[in-house]
Amino acid sequence: DHDVVPEDKFQETLHLKEKEGCPQAFHALLSWLLTQDSTAILDFWRVLFKDYNLERYGRLQPILDSFPKDVDLSQPRKGRKPPAVPKALVPPPRLPTKRKASEEARAAAPAALTPRGTASPGSQLKAKPPKKPESSAEQQRLPLGNGIQTMSASVQRAVAMSSGDVPGARGAVEGILIQQVFESGGSKKCIQVGGEFYTPSKFEDSGSGKNKARSSSGPKPLVRAKGAQGAAPGGGEARLGQQGSVPAPLALPSDPQLHQKNEDECAVCRDGGELICCDGCPRAFHLACLSPPLREIPSGTWRCSSCLQATVQEVQPRAEEPRPQEPPVETPLPPGLRSAGEEVRGPPGEPLAGMDTTLVYKHLPAPPSAAPLPGLDSSALHPLLCVGPEGQQNLAPGARCGVCGDGTDVLRCTHCAAAFHWRCHFPAGTSRPGTGLRCRSCSGDVTPAPVEGVLAPSPARLAPGPAKDDTASHEPALHRDDLESLLSEHTFDGILQWAIQSMARPAAPFPS
């Protein structure tokens, strides 16, 4: 592969990997390779389809078979030569091979799209000592099968071997295949498990690692696999990028399955594409389908809103127990993405979901129960707010008499603000006073009005108090039968009158 990737590009890729991570280095090298001529790309395919690569990765054979028959990708048995050289000459001794072996032994695996480039050397060096003999053996194999790289107009793939297949390693990572398949204008990513390549439709969760975000852009890794992070704060999961590491605690105790298979379609829109997988259930989501939507993949363990709600429900009964003089119970939860139609709101002032922060849900004790107040519409209280300059209440639009249902020339009671006709409430011909108009209920007259088809109010509507207090003497005590009587009149003013009279009014101040 030294004929494909020059030394300066190799060093530039290593520097970019240390600065921005393996995914960015892979993407940059792939983009550079696509700008080369067809001879360089053909050399790339020839390096990929060597015999030892085909033996190690069985899924490469179907890719090789898909090439046109007129494309010669065979390799000479006596060494490598550029395709432009007409004579089959043995190339001179390859010093770059020693360079590659020494550099890969030092860096474990470079971040390139060629056999030198995919593992994360920093994480491997940190986690190597417990498994040094086995990992050293794996390093000797890295130059042979560490990076199976493929690129063409139909298929483009980048393979990364790992030393996680050490025997006896619980939940060992089998390997990473960062794979971009450009077929019919689409893009897919796969993962390699035990020599087999699994596409998103049959993606397997190998051991402790999972394909957290099938994305090839942005600074985030394709698999949430930063070796420096180790395990999740809650004892979460091992990262795919942690090559040759000792077994780590796999999943939280509440995880239903340690080796679950995540779905390959969004649980909201039932469509495929780039998904984020939940650590607590097999569901996966688009970032845009979450509520609120996320802009980037959160670091650490992530769970959907259903799993978060289940966790909150487990903690909430203990938080609601009476604990005198104790601060509110704080339950730190990872930043969760909410699927459509589901929402768990945190306290005000918290950062938005999706940031690399930890939301704190506070379970406050329930407030003391209070008697429910009568629910009145805002339009129902409008007549009470229509007060004239002299303190006389004006008529609201649409006000109707509670007896006849007519809204023409209605009066407004100064005591309960109900609309009424003087002739309907006082049919006996009582003279109307000039000021202080009161309806039949507030004036103490319980004589029913002779209106055909309208039920008369119940005599129990009024329960006047002592006459010594004029204001308190007109406080009506309405009961269920009074409400039914008012409802039978089918008037809004009657219902409003009952609601206003049912509310307690402050006692009249004593004259000074």
Rank of each mutant, 00 (worst) to 15 (best):
Q243Y: 13
G244M: 10
G244Y: 05
P247G: 12
A248T: 08
A251V: 11
L252V: 10
L252D: 15
P256E: 05
L258R: 06
L258M: 14
Q260P: 05
Q260L: 11
D264P: 13
C266V: 04
V268F: 14
C269Y: 04
G273W: 06
E274W: 05
D279I: 06
G280S: 09
L287D: 12
L290F: 15
S291W: 15
R295M: 11
E296A: 11
E296D: 15
S299M: 01
S299K: 05
T301P: 08
W302M: 14
W302Q: 12
R303S: 10
R303Q: 03
S305R: 13
S305K: 11
Q309T: 05
Q309Y: 11
Q309W: 15
Q309E: 09
A310D: 12
V312E: 10
P317W: 10
R318I: 05
R318N: 15
A319H: 08
R323W: 09
P327V: 09
V329H: 07
L333I: 08
P335A: 13
A340T: 15
V344A: 06
G349Y: 12
T357Y: 15
V360G: 13
K362I: 04
L364Q: 14
L364S: 09
L364A: 09
P365K: 10
P367H: 06
P368H: 10
S369N: 12
A370V: 13
L373S: 08
G375A: 09
G375L: 01
L376E: 08
S379Y: 15
L381E: 11
L381F: 14
H382N: 13
L384D: 12
V387Y: 06
G388P: 14
P389A: 06
P389F: 07
Q392G: 10
Q392V: 06
Q393K: 12
Q393G: 08
Q393F: 14
L395M: 14
A396S: 11
P397K: 10
R400L: 07
C401V: 03
D406C: 12
T408R: 06
V410H: 12
L411C: 15
L411V: 12
T414Y: 04
H421L: 01
W422S: 06
H425Y: 08
G429D: 06
G429M: 01
R432T: 00
P433H: 15
G434W: 12
L437G: 06
R438F: 11
C442S: 01
S443P: 10
G444F: 14
P448Q: 04
P450N: 09
E452V: 09
E452K: 07
A456Q: 02
S458L: 08
A460P: 05
R461E: 04
A463G: 10
A463L: 12
G465S: 05
A467P: 08
K468F: 12
D470P: 06
T471R: 09
A472C: 05
A472R: 08
H474I: 13
H474K: 07
E475Y: 09
L478V: 08
H479Q: 03
D481Y: 03
L483P: 03
E484Q: 02
E484G: 06
L487E: 02
S488F: 06
F492Y: 03
I495Y: 06
I495K: 01
L496C: 05
Q497A: 07
W498P: 01
S502K: 01
M503N: 04
A504Q: 07
A504R: 01
P506C: 03
A507M: 06
A507Y: 09
A508E: 08
P509W: 04
F510V: 02
S512A: 01
